[in-house]
């Protein structure tokens, strides 16, 4: 069984997830990056996108169950930071939504609106619009296909 690292996903309004994870993949500033246990200490900004993690199956945070079964969890995150320590990964973000919390219809509508807004900007200072599009994409990405 691979070594595990503790994963916390925190937002200002809640601790969204805490538990043992084998692998954490997050949209880092310089490209997606994965963190296993014993990763070198690191602090990075995150892009808007999808954080996924492989965690032990069953109750989250239950490290007693030494079963080999694992499951994947995914969160759409709206930017933020990731702090990696050898035994702990902390993801700090304004918003983190799990599969169950996402309204697919609303996300689709947001995507359409955001893409229209982006196309009207035509390149000039469109960071905000790009972010909106990315956020809608992230939400749709984790609801679109089964885990």
């Amino acid at each position: 069984m691979p070594a595990r690292t503790r994963l916390s996903i925190v937002t200002p309004s809640a601790l969204k997830f805490q538990g043992e994870a084998e692998l954490v993949v997050a949209p880092g500033a310089a490209g997606d990056l994965g963190a296993l246990a014993h990763h070198a200490p690191m602090l990075t900004t995150l892009r808007t996108g999808v954080v996924s993690a492989t965690i032990a199956a069953g109750a989250a945070g239950d490290d007693q169950s030494a079963s080999r079964a694992t499951e994947r969890i995914q969160f759409a995150v709206d930017g933020g930071f990731m702090q990696i320590l050898p035994d702990h990964v902390v993801i700090l973000t304004d918003l983190a939504l799990s599969r169950d919390e996402i309204d697919v219809e609303a996300a689709r509508a947001d995507l359409k609106r955001a893409e229209e807004a982006l196309s009207q900007k035509k390149g000039a200072d469109d960071a905000h619009e790009r972010r909106d599009v990315a956020w809608a994409h992230a939400r749709l990405a984790i609801t679109a296909r089964p885990l």
Partner: peptide, 14 residues
């Protein structure tokens, strides 16, 4: 545990 931290993209940007 925590001496040399790496920063991505770099410390200033973070």
């Amino acid at each position: 545990l925590r001496n040399a931290f790496e920063f991505e993209p770099d410390a200033g940007a973070v």
